[in-house]
Nucleic acid binder design. Structure first.
Length: 410
RNA sequence: GUGGACGUAGUUCAGCUGGUAGAGCACCUGUUUGUGGCACAGGUUGUCGCGGGUUCGAGCCCCGUCGUCCACCCCA
């Protein structure tokens, strides 16, 4: 037996239905916010991710599905969505148009990690990217959109926000932080020591308690923002207050990807284990430029579909469609014209095996059908069908040609 | 990449100090040979993850391997 590869998963039945439900719900909301669907390749040049995600992240360093294709190109399965979307945006020269552009996408992402709860090697994200809008109003609007999506899905969450600063205030802060960290180097854990070199901001959200207690006195970016970043962040929190969206300012909140600046946010759930981030995003005003486009402000987010799968409450499934069956083999074929006609408007299941009456009734029940339509010897002789509404329990026999549900059942 | 737990019927699990497997659910068939969801009766299903080893004998012990899960790491 051949099983799926490690960290890859098949989705069937209620799981695939829930998956669809999530995507459909998110799509509906995104469209209402003016987003258009964009589809980009799963395979991209490795250079794209090196330049966008950044070499400091483990994603690029060791988690990418990277290989040489048959034409000798250095390629990667995308580990996240934003880089590809921005690349497409620049490829289409949309950066040269004054129009603002908004895109939503969903699809598989690949990271070669050790699988655990909420972390697969092939996982799916739904995300949105808004280009050309520098106003913090857009950051706020995106947060309200995610809230709407989670509300529609019946998911509870906690919202964390922070500001990562911009090229004006971030580099100085970074230097100060590194200086501070280097001072207490000996007392920090080995992971943090590594991070001082690779990604000092990452030290801030270390889970080690000793590190955290040492960090209480560390310089905080939020207190060292430039005027513009500071005023934007204040505006954002004021808007959230006004909209009655509760949030926590988490000065240790960091985005893992290098391209973020200014607003950063994360939606977390306490109900799904250690991989608690169910959506994350923020502003990335410099990424378009990094990827050879004209400087274009942008803000976006992604939802981890697998991570919210078990949190989603599906609407109750009601009896739906028609089950058709026959008691004698000759009668089975008499069902086909009828089935074809009814399939123009509703779901029809035809049982090809002739079976006893009772066994058909059980079959109809199991198929969760609303109606059972059966033909036995008597019906075949008389040219009629017998049918029953499994919910109201009304039943009737009518001539085949006259058969419609509307006419015969309320 | 690091640390830990676990892999037994379709599924959830039981299996005591080693003697070649069991339960619930699910499924199938019946309970007047034309009335579903309930109840009752009966029935089917396993190379006990895979490969070695120890032993007269292994689902139980040992080693390896693959996989799952949890945490770290990373991140959605």
């Amino acid at each position: 037996m051949i099983n799926p590869l490690r960290g890859m998963k098949d989705l069937t039945f209620e799981e695939s239905q829930r998956f669809n439900f999530i995507v459909n719900t998110a799509t509906t909301v995104a469209k209402r916010y003016g987003y258009n669907y964009i589809e980009t390749p799963i395979l991209e040049e490795t250079a794209l991710f090196k330049r966008s995600v950044g070499e400091s992240s483990d994603i690029v360093g060791k988690e990418m599905y990277q290989f040489e294709d048959k034409g000798g190109n250095d390629v990667c399965m995308r580990p996240e969505g934003t880089a590809g979307i921005v690349r497409a945006f620049v490829s289409a020269k949309l950066d040269r148009q004054p129009m603002k552009q908004k895109f939503y996408y969903y699809g598989p992402m690949f990271r070669y990690e050790r699988p655990q709860k909420g972390r697969l090697r092939e996982f799916h994200q739904f995300g949105c990217e808004s280009f050309g809008e520098a106003s913090v109003y857009e950051d706020f609007t995106i947060i309200t959109m995610i809230k709407q999506i989670f509300d529609a899905l019946g998911i509870g969450f906690e919202l964390l926000v922070n500001s990562l600063g911009c090229p004006t205030c971030m580099p100085t802060y970074r230097e100060n932080l590194v200086a501070y960290l280097t001072n207490i180097k000996e007392e920090l854990c080995s992971d943090c020591n590594r991070r001082i070199e690779t990604n000092p901001i990452r030290v801030l959200d270390c889970k080690n308690e000793t590190c955290q207690s040492l960090l209480t006195a560390s310089p905080k970016l939020i207190e060292n923002l430039c005027e513009e970043c500071d005023s934007d962040f204040k505006k954002l929190t004021a808007l959230l207050d006004k909209a009655d969206i509760s949030y926590t300012v988490d000065t240790n909140l960091v985005r893992g990807l290098d391209y973020y600046s200014k607003t950063a946010f994360e939606f977390v759930s306490s109900e799904i284990g250690s991989q608690s981030a169910i959506a994350g995003g923020g502003r990335y005003d410099r990424l378009v430029e990094f990827l050879d486009g004209k400087p274009t402000p942008a803000v976006g987010f992604a939802i981890g579909i697998e991570r919210i799968m078990e949190l989603v409450k599906m609407p109750e499934t009601k009896r739906e469609g028609i089950y058709m069956g026959a008691m004698t083999q000759e009668a089975v074929e008499a069902l086909f014209p009828l089935a074809e006609q009814k399939r123009k408007e509703s779901k029809v299941t035809v049982e090809y095996n002739s079976k006893g009456f009772k066994s058909h009734m059980k079959g109809a029940d199991k198929a969760n059908a609303r109606y059972a339509v059966l033909i036995g010897e008597d019906e075949l002789k008389e040219g009629t069908v017998w049918f029953k509404d499994l919910e109201s329990k009304e039943e009737k026999s009518v001539l085949l040609g006259e058969f419609t549900f509307k006419m015969h059942l309320p």
